[in-house]
Design a protein around this nucleic acid. Structure first.
Lengths: 328, 328
DNA sequence: CTGAAAGCGCTTACAG
DNA sequence: CTGAAAGCGCTTACAG
């Protein structure tokens, strides 16, 4: 079932069939119709691989994320996929398993498939750099959320805006001391967030205790951090978590220890993943959908000079920063 | 940068380069080395598209889900992706946007890319059938989670096992009456689940009230169902939700209305998505990872006769079915 | 063991 | 407007 069969059936040449299908050239109406009829009759389906080979463009892009189970990615992927589908660009999705070596292999795979561009959230700010650099040398590459290369397109959330909103909100809720929980040295986004938190504290008169680092920003680490803080005896007024999952784990452990929230301590997260609403977690919403759409936009208009896009997030106040007794 | 360049550099023919790279034929050691050296020197990267065209196999499969933001899919996709990567098979991911027409278009796209097989969770038990049927006629197709075609491979969770565990657990917790919330006529999995619930109730002496249908099984519907039940005045002892998100919404609404859980009512979910643990929701865990792996297995060994795989889920008791006063 | 040649299914410059 | 031909980058049967 190839173009040749269609040509035969329609009584024209393969070239004409191609012209009808691509629409890249004028074709006599009667031939056009003959071709269309033949296509339908035979149930012809063009071979995208052959077209890609010939066109030197696969009409596909690769998306590589550290862990597709991390709830911040599906929404971005979905938005990007839908946006790209409008331009007939397909998505090849790979998961790097939070492992720099798997990431490097996946990059090879994607390149071998001749993707036209790459959207990558690097596993590690430093260790991912070599493989990313090599890939960026071959196709347009956009870094998502985290950064490994300074001179390459990047799209992320504005940490200063987010942390400023959090800190002023906590101040308004009466907090005097706070701690940032969940910094991870390998993730540029969390490093920036911790830094922005410190700056905002200095600026708005919140005393910050030493930031807690984590081996990985997930629920288990949140629990561990809670135990840590509890062990030290005196909790700060507020605990600012680097992301929502950390906050969930932390809240669970706090509750198990009899610490109430709201009530005894204020807690915030970051990202506003779906579960945040159900748990009443105050958090910073970054529009994942906008990010996906923005990524699709950058992908479709490559540029010579690196672009750094920062989306502005929005604080979503919920129960975990409510002050008991005050009408909320 | 093609095979011809490598051949030139290595002083051999392109055929020999190909033989070295594929490993499909003996090559003299010195030539092999020359080729390998040339590849490294030139940073050669084979063109997978050209190979696919020639081999008539793209070494890729398509995965099509109704909504990648539905948390049950990423884990399955991830497991399948990793399993397939071991066989050098890549994944093309598409999202159908919970829309039968988008689904049909995506199926076309995937087929045009010449995927070797398809893993599809159908949007609708009946409306998805035609497009699925057409696709299944061209490549091996496996239905995931929901079914639209009876005579095509299917892999899902065993509803009888799950609902039996839920019902006996509720009985043991002292429930006499229960209601199933969240049936959706277009999703075979939820129809089966509702049916299995009724059967289990009959078998284990739980009085079941008329099942609540939903337009879509999400948090918003859960809230609506809660309002519905509240409006009727007398709540049953237990509310069995078709999935976790429904339960989250329902719990939020009940809480807002002053109904305590645990305390006043028992609530269960289904799937055990990550947030279930944080919310203390009793639910039915289906091993998403096993499902992904199983899917990858079926994909790699196509079969003449349709296979129906049912994974056995496991009840995970948590706070929402605790009986107050009893030590849990 | 190795090379020249054909061919996978398209598309487009070229000549008419 | 249309067809024959070349070519995208591989792979493999064929002949040596």
């Amino acid at each position: 079932m190839t173009m040749k069969d269609v040509a035969l059936e329609a009584g024209v040449s393969a070239a004409t069939v191609s012209r009808v299908l691509t629409g890249h050239a004028k074709v006599a109406p009667e031939k056009r119709e003959a071709v269309e009829r033949a296509c339908r009759k035979l149930g012809y389906q063009p071979d995208g691989l052959a077209a890609a080979l010939r066109n030197r463009s696969s009409q596909s892009i690769g998306i590589l994320v550290p862990d597709i189970e991390n709830p911040i990615f599906p929404a971005v992927i979905r938005a990007a996929e839908h946006e790209l589908a409008r331009a007939a660009v397909d998505v090849l999705l790979c998961d790097a398993d939070n492992d720099v070596e798997v990431e490097a292999r996946r990059l090879e795979t994607l390149l071998r498939r001749r993707v036209d561009a790459l959207l990558v959230c690097p596993v590690h700010v430093r260790d991912s750099a070599p493989a990313l650099r090599a890939a960026a040398g071959k196709v347009p590459l956009i870094q998502l959320d985290r950064r490994a290369l300074d001179d390459v397109d990047f799209i992320g959330v504005d940490p200063v805006s987010g942390m400023t909103q959090v800190v002023t909100h906590l101040r308004a809720a009466g907090a005097h001391t706070a701690v940032f929980v969940g910094r991870h040295g390998g993730m540029s986004s969390l490093v920036e967030r911790a830094r922005a938190f410190e700056d905002a504290c200095a600026l708005h008169g919140l005393r910050d205790r030493p930031t807690l680092e984590v081996p990985f920003p997930d629920g288990a680490s949140g629990r561990a951090c809670a135990r840590d803080l509890l062990a030290r005896g005196d909790l700060p007024d507020a605990i600012v978590c680097a992301n929502d999952e950390l906050a969930f784990g932390l809240l669970a452990e706090l509750r198990a220890a009899g610490v109430r929230c709201p009530g005894d301590v204020l807690v915030t997260g970051h990202d506003d993943i779906r579960a945040a609403e159900y748990l009443g977690l105050t958090t910073v919403n970054q529009s994942l959908q906008d990010k996906g759409r923005e990524a699709a936009r950058l992908l479709r208009q490559p540029s010579g000079s690196p672009r750094h896009v920062r989306l502005t997030p929005v604080l979503v106040p919920r129960a975990t920063t409510e002050v008991l007794g005050s009408p909320s």
